[in-house]
Design a protein around this nucleic acid. Structure first.
Length: 857
RNA sequence: GCCGGAGUGGCGGAACGGCAGACGCGGCGGUCUCAAAAACCGUUGUCGAAAGACGUGCGGGUUCAAAUCCCGCCUCCGGCACCA
């Protein structure tokens, strides 16, 4: 017998697979397709255990699917544009491309050492002009469809990364990449109008049955749909008089979900960034205070805003608006607790029903008028049914924001108030009738800011011409090539790179200059899965026919950190391609698996600074790739965090060795006494054999069930049970004894085959070696059909049942598998006669194959 | 604050409402060995000598039967957050 030596067999088989193009995609239309995809990596150095986990899961699914008879697409590529490459280039005085391509080679070599079954002919590298030209093409199509906008607005600016960021890339006021504090700036930038798809992106979450609930929830929260109404307030002049014939300029509109509380509006608030604040107070006594507040709040960083204690600051403008429901004059304040870019940036304040307004009213001593009360409120008896204003101040601790009864609310008094209440509906209906309000749905989702002031990205294909204005680069001129000669260390940028920025206007031919911003790297990752379906196309980003055959991705695997970012953007791109007629699907990823993190033995995240990183290469060097793969699948369900435990890895390595010896023994090639220990009695041998045959069928069924639900840990546990049954049998029955019995000889061969096939997706090199060298089969194990099983043979002819008395197990009985209920009942009653002595049997519940419960009193 | 998810032996984790703890790690005892490693066998929830009792975060409930379903809490993890 040859010892199991992963270091010898793994490189050997990797070479063979490469030579035989074992992982090439077949494009065999006679088979059902399966697209298995793992999120492509960013090439920052070598791979870590998180990658190993992510890609092992994908590889097992891909290999298993292939054996199940699917035509499998399982590609890999690199998300290769981005800031780390640029930073590394500046640090080492080299070029981002050098760093990027070196890392790609390193990672690719590691992937091959892990035995991942990618078709390398389909590799997509995002910084390759053959790829990014299509990113530019897509940009132009979006532009044609009105989905591209260049506009000025307050944006997130990361001073550290020296670029703007999308909303999705700011977490608690920090940059997603460098974790530095983000600032607000007013800049003109490029946007993709993802908000045009807000409703559909929300609605179609329902289609995604194969997605984790938490990811769908996160996206729904991010989109943040809110139903309410816009209400128009009329602005009084500086003397406080309402205009007789108000024009559009005299209207300030608010968005509210609580129009039912309009009668409790005791002040009105504008965000400091609200356009026109300066005009409101220009030349008045209030100008100084108000503009001071505006300046002060502009200085507050996004981090402070996000993490601060939310102390509210405000200033009165000296101006008033008219409340449309009761004609009341309401003072206008400017306050930093109003979000400028949500709704209209102006809100009606109802301190009795909104905690923020309440706190503000307390601080600045503004009226808190009770207009909605719970029935158990002490004030309710006094105000129930009172429609005119009677009480104008309360001494509550907090606002009342639950459902209640409207009081002091004119004709609406007595109606139920609250979100989506009858009171709200009645008031909005009247506002609509009088033209002072309208139904409105707001979203938290903002348009996607896609321009970046960085070099290492995909150039935005746009030209500025003094005569023609903003002009798209004609499609035939694509790609706009990123210039190679750039001295980043010396501070050169695309904007200062004259050769790049200078051009002629495609419309009029006059001298013009290019846009020098590049696109967010997330634009690259929003469609790479489509390029894989047709990676060498030179006419289009992909052939719709090919994409429609392979799409949607049947199983997508990646980290939870993309729950919003990449997964939302990709859904958006897919919907646009569908509307362009290039895709027939609404959603790109049918099933999503978010793998848990790999942590150290204390549950801490692995990081270089903590010095607790386990390098995949070290583990491969010690135990081989197959053991690492099996270990990572076995130690935890895929969506849970995995705590690294080398003892567990050693255990799996032991298991691989054990099955290795079992297969040798079953193949009749074991050394003397490898497993065999003693001739057991014929009865014992027959029993062990019967059990083993049963296990062979049961376990194959169980592994299929588990693989189909991505329960790799229990699938491996089941294979271990089969190995245990085989081991028990082989200890008892000698090779000679088995050879003398044709049934047993045949079963030995069958079992060896099944064991190797079951483990093939998990330990591909191990399986291939045993398949060819030991079992002597032709071809690759990975080309074999998945083993079959007979559920009938998985059943025992006798079963043990637990016998309970009042739910407590008191005895066990063995009955024939097909025993009649009446017979089981009798046997059970007899078995627990002692425990039921002197009691009345009230009921006997027989659950065939499981237990008997006797209710005795 | 709002929205998700999770709490099971010493540890990782199993359990269509039906024998809690599969499988593995670790521990203990043994076989082999001069010895050790490897390999193999047995054992291992807690208390108890045993019979037995108790056990799935806490408190209730439904059920013949609850880790699982319902109600009310606690703790931890994740997301969002001054979004009107």
């Amino acid at each position: 017998m040859k010892e199991y030596n992963p270091h010898e067999i793994e490189p050997r088989w990797q070479k063979v697979w490469e030579e035989t193009q074992a992982n090439k995609v077949n494009e065999d239309a006679s088979k059902p397709k399966k697209y298995v995809l793992e999120m492509f990596p960013y090439p920052s150095g070598d791979i870590h255990m998180g990658h190993v986990r992510n890609y092992t899961i994908g590889d097992v699914i891909a290999r298993y699917s292939k054996m199940q008879g699917f035509d499998v697409l399982h590609p890999m590529g690199w998300d290769a544009f981005g800031l780390p490459a640029e930073n590394a280039a500046i640090k080492h005085n080299s070029h981002p491309a050098t760093w990027t391509y070196n890392n790609i080679e390193t990672q690719k070599a590691s992937f091959k050492r892990m035995g991942f079954s990618y078709d390398w002919d389909r590799t997509v590298v995002a910084c390759d002009p053959e790829y990014y030209r299509w990113g530019q093409w897509i940009f132009l199509q979006f532009w044609k469809r009105g989905l591209v906008e260049r506009r000025n607005s307050p944006v997130n600016w990361c001073p550290n990364c020296k670029t703007v960021l999308a909303n999705e890339q700011v977490t608690e006021g920090e940059c997603w990449r460098c974790h530095g504090a983000v600032e607000k700036r007013d800049l003109t930038q490029w946007y993709f109008k993802i908000t045009d798809y807000a409703q559909e992106l929300l609605d179609d979450l329902d289609q995604l049955e194969g997605w984790p609930e938490r990811v769908k929830q996160m996206q729904a929260n991010w989109i943040g749909r809110s139903e309410g109404a816009e209400v128009d307030f009329i602005l009084c002049d500086k003397e406080g008089n309402a205009p007789e014939n108000p024009s559009e300029d005299d209207i300030i509109t608010v968005f509210t979900t609580r129009a039912d509380t309009l009668f409790g509006c005791s002040f009105f608030v504008l965000a400091p960034e609200y356009e026109g604040v300066a005009d409101l107070v220009a030349g008045t006594d209030f100008e100084k205070d108000v503009m001071g507040l505006v300046e002060a709040s502009a200085k507050v960083s996004a981090v402070e805003r996000a993490q601060g204690d939310h102390e509210k600051h405000g200033a009165f403008t000296g101006r008033y608006v008219i409340n449309p429901v009761n004609g009341e004059k309401v003072p206008i304040w400017v306050a930093d607790y109003v979000v400028a870019d949500y709704g209209t940036g102006a809100v009606m304040a109802v301190p009795c029903g909104d905690q923020r307004d309440f706190e503000f009213a307390r601080k600045y001593d503004l009226p808190i008028i009770p207009i909605i009360l719970g029935k158990d409120d002490p004030l309710f008896a006094e105000l129930d049914g009172v429609s005119d204003r009677k009480v104008v101040q309360v001494d509550w601790e907090n606002a009342y924001d639950a459902e209640g009864i409207l009081v002091q609310s004119g004709k609406y008094t007595g109606l139920v108030g609250g979100k989506h209440s009858e009171g709200e509906a009645a008031i909005v209906a009247d506002l609509e009738a009088s033209g002072r309000g309208r139904r409105k749905v707001e979203y938290r989702l903002r348009d996607w800011l896609i321009s970046r002031q960085r070099y290492w990205g995909n150039p935005i294909p746009a030209i500025y011409c003094d005569h023609c204005g903003l002009v798209p680069v004609p499609e035939e001129d694509l790609p706009v090539m990123l210039p190679k000669d750039i001295d980043l260390a010396a501070g050169e940028t695309l904007a200062t790179h004259e050769e790049f920025s200078k051009c002629t206007c495609p419309k009029c031919g006059a001298p013009a200059h290019r846009e020098t911003d590049t696109m967010d790297t997330f634009t690259c990752s929003s469609w790479y899965y489509l390029r894989y379906t047709d990676p060498h196309n030179t006419e289009l980003p992909f052939d719709p026919e090919k994409a429609n055959r392979w799409m949607p991705v049947d199983q997508y695997i990646g980290g939870i950190e993309h729950a919003i970012l990449h997964l939302l953007y990709s859904r958006f791109f897919t919907k646009v391609f569908r509307d362009m007629g290039m895709l027939t699907y609404d959603e790109p990823f049918s099933n999503l698996l978010c793998q848990g993190m790999v942590k150290d033995e204390n549950g801490e995240t692995m990081s270089k600074s903590k010095g607790n990183v386990i390098a995949p290469e070290d583990m491969i060097a010690e135990y081989g790739a197959d053991a690492v793969r099996a270990y990572i699948l076995f130690m935890a369900p895929p969506d849970k965090d995995l705590l690294w435990d080398e003892g567990g890895l050693a255990g799996i390595y032991k298991f691989m060795n054990r099955v290795w010896r079992i297969v040798y023994d079953l193949a009749g090639q074991a050394d003397e006494n490898t497993l065999f220990q003693k001739d057991a009695s014929e009865k014992e041998i027959e029993k062990a054999f019967k059990t083993l045959v049963r296990e062979r069928h049961r376990v194959v069924g169980k592994v299929i069930e588990d693989f189909d639900r991505n329960n790799f840990n229990t699938a491996i546990a089941a294979i271990m049970e089969l190995a245990n049954a085989a081991s028990d049998y082989l200890h008892k029955a000698s090779a000679d004894m088995r050879k003398a019995d044709a049934t047993k000889t045949a079963f030995d061969a069958e079992l060896a085959t099944v064991l190797v096939e079951l483990l093939a997706p998990i330990a591909p090199h191990w399986a291939e070696e045993l398949w060819t060298t030991v079992l002597g089969h032709e071809g690759s194990v990975h080309e074999q059909p998945w083993p079959d099983f007979d559920p009938e043979k998985a059943k025992d002819d006798e079963v043990e049942l637990a016998v309970q008395v009042n739910g407590k197990v008191k005895a066990r009985i063995t009955v024939a598998a097909d025993a009649a209920e009446e017979a089981i009942r009798e046997q059970a009653l007899e078995a627990v006669a002692g425990a039921t002595d002197g009691k009345t049997i009230a009921k006997v519940i027989v659950i065939p194959g499981r237990l008997v419960n006797i209710v005795a009193k």
